[in-house]
Design a protein around this nucleic acid. Structure first.
Length: 411
RNA sequence: CAGGCUGUAGUGUAACGGUAACACGCACCGUUCGGGUCGGUGAGAUUCCGGGUUCAAAUCCCGGCAGCCUGACCA
């Protein structure tokens, strides 16, 4: 992508009504546009980041057998009523032009919809287990949207649901999902803490959350300094300084951001919507379910909160909009050649080919946008048949001969 | 949903109750060209909306709406 063609621009000053770091940097860099409180558009750079996160999630969820689907955002009353979730104060309701009242809610969770779908295909224990997921916009009437991408009224979520013949089978999958989740967050540059928590409107059982320690988080967890065992403040009996219940370490309280969660939902939804299977003995039983969510925008916002410096974003390698930010300080064919060459080799490059910007502005933009590697081409470097290569998270730059650029990028 | 703070060119800020200014950005001219260069010219605002007080309102009062913060609630 050439910066001269990118329709968004960076801005110098952060909007006054966005005190949160993630929103300030993402807006300044042109990654997102705030349309309303808690409602953001993802612009080219931001959409690429979100796409990277989505792909990481797909790879890991596919690896544990999740089948990707896509369900409606308009969810009819008939789905939500049987579980008692139609009248909850969570969603935005939609109504037709001449209808007196709403028969639809904008989907804020899809247990009911998928359970209803599954009941058409699941008859026998032989049909179990299976799991399906989607990556879709969720709508939740947040009484208080806040903190940029961290808490929105409309946000992209990956929701996975699993269906089992027994609790034991669910337990096995739950563990697989846990490990898949830890991999996902690690690949996104986040250290997530597996935390025991409560289930809110989703289940009466205990659940597990994936919490990233950060002062801007709205959750508080008690985490062991030795084994990493953690419990959410909302259910824990632990206090700061207590002995860890799992080892001889000590727990301390930390603010944290919940980037994902997994639930054992038991038979709550299958019983309400009549999802049963026939076992080997010929008896009908309700299907046992699990649900697993990740907020993609929240992952993105959290990554920015964790990975930034005074100059801008420092994207984790795997979710950066581009791998390389190529800066040409003056118009020259050599930079064009490097750009074409890298593109052909499959390296994702953001090319600052603008001829009306000074070096300082280009460097400032590169730092703000935060791609992992910056390559500068100028008279100075070309005299030595080289380019200057600098990693965003390192201070020192080094000269790299023209012919060896690719080696440095794959290393 | 309760409490608080705030709404002024695209963005960030100024303006005693006296008729909207500055910087950035944008357009054009020149200059400069390795960390937001320098100088000049120009365009751009019914001061969130609606009422009220006043000779006079961006400024004071009332009512909306919007944004942010704290709490409650929630992922």
């Amino acid at each position: 992508m050439k910066l001269s063609k990118l329709f968004t621009k960076t801005v110098r000053e952060a909007p006054a009504d966005e005190p949160s770091k993630n929103a300030q940097l993402l807006i300044r860099g042109g990654f997102v546009f705030k349309n309303s409180a808690g409602i953001y558009s993802f612009l080219p750079l931001g959409w690429r980041v979100l796409g990277k996160i989505a792909n990481i999630i797909r790879e890991e969820i596919n690896a544990i057998g999740g089948q990707e689907i896509f369900m409606p955002a308009l969810v009819e009353k008939k789905y939500m009523e049987p579980t008692g979730r139609w009248n909850l104060d969570v969603g935005f309701f939609a109504k037709g032009l001449n209808e007196k009242e709403s028969n639809y809610v904008l989907g804020w969770s899809h247990e009911e919809v998928l359970t209803a779908i599954a009941s058409k295909f699941i008859n026998s224990y032989k049909d179990l287990p299976f799991s399906a997921y989607q990556i879709q916009t969720k709508f939740r009437h947040e009484p208080r949207a806040k903190s940029g991408l961290l808490r929105g009224r409309e946000f992209m979520m990956k929701d996975l649901y699993s269906f089992h013949a027994s609790e034991e089978d669910l337990d096995v999958y739950y563990e697989e999902a846990k490990n898949a989740y830890l991999k996902i967050f690690e690949r996104c540059g986040l250290r997530a803490v597996y935390t025991l928590a409560a289930g809110g409107v989703f289940t009466d059982k205990f659940t597990h959350e994936f919490q990233v320690v950060s002062d801007v988080g709205e959750d508080t967890i008690y985490i062991c300094d030795k084994c990493g065992y953690a419990e959410n403040k909302e259910i824990t009996k632990l206090k700061d300084g207590d002995k860890c219940p799992k080892c001889d370490g000590k727990v301390s309280d930390k603010k944290s951001i919940e980037v994902g969660n997994i639930f054992d939902q038991g038979t709550k939804y299958s019983e309400a919507l009549g999802l049963e299977f026939t076992d080997e003995a010929g008896n009908k039983n309700p299907v046992i379910m699990g649900a697993y969510g990740i907020g993609l925008g929240r992952v993105m916002g959290t990554a920015v909160e964790i990975h930034n410096d005074e100059k801008g974003i420092v994207w984790p390698e795997n979710i950066a909009p581009y791998k390389v930010h190529l800066v040409s300080l003056e118009q020259n064919e050599e930079a064009d050649k490097i750009y074409d060459d890298l593109e052909k080799s499959g390296v994702e490059v953001l090319y600052d080919d603008r001829d009306d910007k000074t070096a300082g502005e280009k460097f400032a933009d590169a730092d703000l946008i935060g791609c992992p590697v910056r390559i500068v081409v100028s008279k100075k470097t070309l005299e030595k048949n080289s380019v200057e290569l600098k990693k965003r998270n390192e201070k020192e730059a080094k000269l790299v001969p023209l012919g060896e650029i690719k080696n440095y990028l794959t290393a």
